[in-house]
Design a protein around this nucleic acid. Structure first.
Length: 931
RNA sequence: GCAGGGGUGGCAGAGCUUGGCCAAAUGCGACGGGCUUAGGACCCGUUCCUUUAGCGGGUGCGAGAGUUCAAAUCUCUCCCCCUGCACCA
């Protein structure tokens, strides 16, 4: 039995002593692998085995393939969540305190976590120790965090380049906002962690006839402007007349005014009751038609602007409201809906009525029904609708929307209005309702720049993306990404160089940090103020003269030289491991920033996307209540087994339980391998027999499969092949009478070597038990010996297995009828049948085949046989084993078959048998006769 | 809505790129049997339906249609699910 904890600790000690993973420049080809750095806002849970275990497997495999491998790690402390969490601790938020206690964190530590930096550092250390006991082959000398002052210098340098290349632009940007705290509010700052969903609406101004002010209506569908028949206001509501953008006057409801002042420049002039607007008329800003202002009881005074433009032909609510007004007698004359768009194939005068009827509603329906009709209509019209209004004929609705916005804008009758689309009100932690604020002069990184995009696409075309289907996603991400806001008001991180009141947003400060690993331990003794852009320019871009850089920065010449050497050595062959969820942000930004900053030689080469599993420890803890901490799991199961489980089982985190059964079954298999290794010296070494060659053949096939899987990172295949199939093969070898230490030792040695990437500790242990004194970590990946692959031999063994299956079934079924069966004849098919089979496959013609068989064959018999075969002529497979070979195989395996099926076995040849069933024999599918 | 990825046996999950040993790997589960005082572990078998001993036959990989001698695999249409959509790591 393997004592997992003992051997893991032992080998970790050995690796440390030998400094196996401290990577320095040498003659070998470099390979640098980086995995997304953890965000330490909690203890490390077993999910990390997927990300870092996978990267570790690659690192270990590449070492065995002769590469000089660098696998560094850092910690990402930048951002808001730590701050938000620290605030919760400060506020004594019970749920977070309970969470932390359940992780076994002492109370006095939790208290100190009201300081976000303390919390981050604490958990970073936790995660680090979790990684260490997991035995990941990282170079621990290179650890840093994204809030290290020196790293900040590096980021400032990066942003200097972004600025210099005109990649930073300013503009307006809507954000969730707490007016009490005067702060931008993201998901982490709201009650119950609700993400504020900001949507854009169109505000359209309708001037009022004879007045100095207009109404501003909010709508999702400005393209229906030509279908507007009237405007609704709510009579009992107070409206404010205000000046917008120091030019025209508009009115909005009092309640929406309070929100809109955060988006539009509004200056209140006076108040007016909705009632007072009712007798007035206003002007459609595009068609210039005069339309009435009508009372709308359904108008919500706190949404949009409190004024609604009415399009009865395309909005069921408007249609119903107008009908009701007419029925009540308020309107003397019915207002006729104006239809402006149609859907091909749908015949209707008034679409809103059509949809109302479609959901089996009428004008007396409940709001829910009308809402349903509205949604359906909006959806179908947006999808399939084309305009019928003169001037816009056949233009799709969405295209028209943009056109109309433009026309309105040019008349200054259009203003974007942002609303929160959340179903319920979003509250700040302090209890205040969140509003949308448009921030002026927000800084963006302009990923929309076409030249920049082109370079990124060029780079992507050279990147080996695993799995390859993710390459598509990356390409569309590159095309899609546009402006990205880069400055944040709060959180930990590097100050934004162009406005020191802000902090660089945390995904933007981690796009090129991998390059920093190549130098950070070299500049350990350099004080941060010396780390000027000149230094980084030289090290990472080769700009300038080293003497001069040294003189100007006062940094030691040797340090600069080494840094440059280190970067240029390591950063050529880089592999990036990241999660599927990061394709649309981090990985895309990673490519963009690399192509902007570095020479082509140092662009990304290899991206590995860990698919299928969403890593979200937080969710795991809260919804499932079953966080399995890495350190506990390692103690219970061992790092190697966790690696194998994680790699072999994708959907671990979708299940509520850690799959103990799988872990156990893997442990059993490993124990079995271990026992085989231990017993190796009790096994004699003999002359090689068929079954030994069979094992060699299997072994070399396995090497092909595993090498291939390692190259393509099909890790699941690795686990099934090296754990489960190996155990099946070994068991079959023994039960088939295999007992030869020569082949076993070769087999087990290669298995233990090939275990190294995915189960490094056990790999070392097996290797060691077999008498080796080196590390598998530094051994070579086994070579494939194709000559030992014997297809025919494997075919024979497989034939034997299926024969045994057949006999067993036949035996079981026959036993019921004839209880005293004692033995079984197996009858080997004649050679002519093999010839006929193979010939039929080639010619696909029965007559030609028969003629080719020669004179000694009974043609009638052959025709019967072939006509049967011919039914499936396209599915037949050649049989390479001839009659004599099959006969010898079965004869020599009599004991084995006997043992497996429990009856005596006799082997006969078809032509020598007088059994009635003899003619049923097929090549490699002998006839069976129970006696 | 836009974008990306999916829908396979009791479950998880391969396979579909390069159509054919695919009734579909592997693991788990379930059932039966062996071993045990018993349980666990381990071993053997069964696990779509049918079958006149194995052979064989039928149905079958979201739904439907098509291409083909042949489709889980290729094409088209439809339905459904997951993820992301920006200041949030």
């Amino acid at each position: 039995m393997l004592d997992i904890n003992f051997i893991e600790a032992k080998w970790q000690r050995e690796w440390n002593n030998a400094k196996l993973f401290e990577s320095e420049i040498n003659q070998k080809k470099p390979f640098m692998i980086t995995a997304a750095i953890p965000y330490p806002n909690g203890p490390q849970h077993i999910g990390h085995f997927r990300t870092y275990g996978t990267a570790d497997a690659v690192a270990r495999y590449k070492r065995m393939r002769g590469f000089n491998v660098l696998y560094p790690i850092g910690f990402h402390l930048t951002g808001i969540p730590l701050l938000a969490q620290a605030n919760k601790v400060k506020d004594k938020d019970q749920s977070i305190l309970n969470d932390f206690r359940s992780f076994g964190i002492p109370d006095q530590e939790i208290e100190k976590m009201s300081d976000p930096l303390y919390m981050g550092t604490y958990f970073a250390n936790e995660v680090k120790s979790g990684m260490k006991i997991s035995g990941f082959s990282m170079d621990w000398r290179r650890v840093f965090t994204t809030i290290d002052p020196k790293f900040s210098k590096f980021i400032e340098w990066q942003f200097g380049i972004l600025k210099e290349k005109n990649c930073l632009v300013q503009g307006n940007h809507p954000v969730g906002w707490c007016k009490k705290e005067n702060n931008a509010v993201g998901m982490h700052d709201t009650k119950s962690d609700i993400e504020p969903e900001i949507e854009q609406e169109s505000g359209i101004i309708f001037d009022i006839v004879g007045e100095q002010y207009g109404l501003i209506c909010a709508t999702y569908r400005p393209e229906t402007i030509y279908g507007v028949t009237n405007v609704f206001v709510k009579p009992e509501v107070t409206y404010y007349i205000c000046k917008i953008n120091d030019s025209q006057n508009i009115i909005v409801s009092q309640q929406t005014y309070e929100k809109l002042i955060f988006q539009l420049k509004l200056e209140k002039i006076s108040e007016i009751k909705g009632q007072e607007l009712l007798n007035k008329k206003c002007i459609n800003p595009l068609s210039k038609v005069e339309i009435p202002i009508l009372p709308g009881s359904f108008v919500k005074e706190d949404i949009g602007t409190g004024c609604v433009m009415s399009v009865p032909a395309h909005a069921p609510f408007d249609y119903v409201a107008l009908k009701k007004l007419y029925n009540s007698g308020y309107l003397k004359e019915e207002i006729k809906p104006i239809t402006v768009l149609k859907i091909n194939g749908v015949q209707t005068e008034i679409p809103s009525l059509y949809y109302l009827t479609k959901v089996s509603g009428d004008i007396n329906s409940s709001d829910e029904k009308i809402e349903e009709a509205t949604k359906l209509e909006y959806k179908e019209e947006a999808h399939n609708g084309v305009m019928i209004f003169p001037g816009y004929e056949n233009m799709p609705e969405l295209e028209t929307r943009e056109k109309i916005k433009e026309s309105l804008s040019s008349n200054k009758k259009y203003f974007p209005i942002y609303i929160l689309a959340n179903k319920t009100k979003v509250l700040c932690r302090c209890g205040t309702e969140i509003v949308v604020k448009v921030i002026d002069n927000q800084w963006f990184i302009n990923y929309g720049d076409q030249n920049w995009k082109n370079s990124a696409i060029e780079a992507l075309s050279e990147i080996d993306v695993i799995p390859s289907k993710s390459k598509n996603a990356l390409l569309s991400a590159i095309n899609w990404i546009n402006l990205r806001a880069v400055a944040r008001a709060q959180g930990l991180g590097t100050k934004f160089p162009l406005d020191k009141n802000y902090i660089i947003e945390s995904l933007s400060d981690s796009t090129i940090y991998m390059a920093y690993y190549t130098i950070n331990y070299l500049i350990e003794k350099v004080s941060e103020e010396k780390l000027t852009p000149e230094f980084f320019d030289f090290v990472f871009r080769g700009i300038g003269d080293i003497e001069q850089v040294s003189n100007n920065t006062k940094i030691d010449y040797e340090i600069i030289k080494k840094s440059r050497e280190s970067f240029t050595y390591w950063y050529v062959e880089t592999s990036r491991h990241s999660g599927l969820d990061l394709i649309f942000n981090h990985l895309t930004m990673y490519i963009f920033n690399h192509v902007l900053i570095f020479d082509k030689k140092y662009w990304p080469k290899h991206i590995v996307v860990n698919g299928l599993v969403m890593m979200n420890g937080e969710k795991m803890s809260k919804s499932l209540g079953n966080v399995l901490l890495a350190k506990d799991a390692v103690k219970d199961y061992g790092s190697d087994i966790l690696r194998l489980v994680e790699i072999g089982n994708t959907d671990l985190f979708n299940d509520s339980d850690f799959n103990v059964e799988t872990a156990k079954s893997i442990k059993d298999k490993l124990d079995f391998f271990f026992d085989c290794c231990v017993k190796l010296n009790e096994i004699p070494s003999n002359k090689l027999e068929n079954i030994d060659y069979w094992l060699y053949s299997k072994l070399n096939n396995k090497k092909i499969i595993l090498t291939n899987a390692m190259e393509k990172l099909e890790l699941r295949d690795i686990v099934t092949n090296i754990i489960f199939n190996t155990s099946i093969e070994l068991k079959r070898y023994f039960s088939r009478g295999g007992n030869n230490s020569i082949v076993l030792k070769d087999y087990l040695s290669d298995i233990s070597l090939m275990l190294q990437p995915v189960a490094p500790h056990i790999s070392e242990e097996l290797w060691h038990v077999m008498g080796n004194t080196t590390f598998t970590s530094t051994e070579k990946w086994p070579d494939i010996n194709k000559e030992l692959i014997d297809v025919k031999l494997e075919e024979k063994e497989q034939g034997l297995d299926s024969l045994i299956e057949d006999i067993k079934q036949a035996y079981e079924l026959t036993k019921k009828k004839i209880p005293n069966i004692s033995s079984c004849n197996i009858i080997v098919a004649d050679q002519w049948k093999r010839n006929a089979l193979n010939s039929l496959i080639e010619t696909k013609k029965i007559d030609a085949t028969i003629n080719a068989l020669g004179e000694d064959v009974n043609k009638e018999q052959a025709a019967k046989y072939l006509s049967q075969l011919f039914k499936k002529v396209n599915e037949l497979r050649r049989c390479e084993v001839d009659e004599q070979e099959e006969y010898e195989l079965l004869s020599s395996s009599r004991d084995y078959i006997s043992r497996m099926v429990g009856v005596q076995i006799q082997v006969q040849k078809e032509k020598e048998s007088n059994s009635q069933r003899a003619s049923r024999a097929n090549p490699m599918k002998p006839s069976i006769e129970m006696i």
